[in-house]
Simulated scan of single mutants.
Amino acid sequence: MENNEQQIMTIIGSAGASKGKAFAALACVRERDYEGARALLAEAKEADLAAHAAQTEVITQALSGAENAAAASLLMVHAQDHYMTSQLARDLIEEIVKIFEERDAESEQA
């Protein structure tokens, strides 16, 4: 069970890192630093991929009927909540960056 809990904590930590980087990217947009925003969003995506890998491992263990597999615990539900909100934040902020970058490019051409 210990490894399983470590994987769940990896989901929570990676999702938190992703969401933090996504919101830092949004702060870059305020400064019109779109290159910085895209770099932070790429880092956020990497953190999401780490969360996804840990999530896949936990789910695979649960479906395999492994003795140390976690049932749907409150901690896993919490981890899933963090992971899903981090993905939503990253996806939404990626679109916001595109919108503002395109708007600024158009205004510079005018």
Rank of each mutant, 00 (worst) to 15 (best):
N68D: 11
I99R: 05
E106T: 12
L63C: 15
T60R: 14
D91T: 14
L26I: 01
A72F: 13
A24T: 14
I8N: 07
A69Y: 10
A25Y: 00
K21R: 10
F23S: 07
S14A: 13
I8C: 04
L88G: 12
H82C: 00
E95F: 07
Q109I: 15
H78N: 03
Q80M: 06
A54D: 07
Q55W: 06
A47H: 01
E43K: 08
Y34M: 00
A25H: 01
A69Q: 05
A69P: 09
D33M: 00
G13L: 14
Q109M: 10
K21L: 11
H52R: 13
Q6R: 13
T85F: 08
E43G: 12
Q7A: 11
A79Y: 02
A51L: 04
T85V: 13
R38P: 04
I59R: 01
N3W: 06
A17Q: 13
D91K: 09
S86H: 07
R32F: 13
K98C: 03
H82S: 00
N4Y: 08
E106H: 12
K45N: 14
A54K: 05
L40N: 06
V29L: 05
Y34C: 01
A42R: 09
K19A: 06
A25D: 02
V58E: 06
M84Q: 02
I12V: 12
H52V: 08
R90L: 04
Q109H: 07
K45G: 12
I12F: 01
Q87D: 07
A25L: 02
G65N: 06
A72G: 14
R90P: 10
Y83G: 03
D104S: 01
V58M: 04
G65L: 02
A39H: 15
V77I: 14
K21I: 04
F23H: 14
K98E: 11
E35S: 15
R38Y: 08
E43Q: 14
A37S: 01
A44P: 14
A15G: 10
K98T: 15
A50D: 07
E46L: 11
L40C: 02
S64Q: 13
I12Q: 10
E101I: 03
E5H: 09
A70P: 13
A51V: 03
G36L: 05
E46G: 08
L41A: 01
L75V: 14
Q87K: 07
E46Y: 04
S107W: 04
M1N: 13
E108D: 14
K45V: 14
V58D: 02
R30S: 13
E94I: 08
A37Q: 04
Q61W: 02
A47L: 00
A70G: 06
E102L: 09
E94G: 06
H82M: 00
A54F: 05
T85A: 03
S86N: 03
V77N: 07
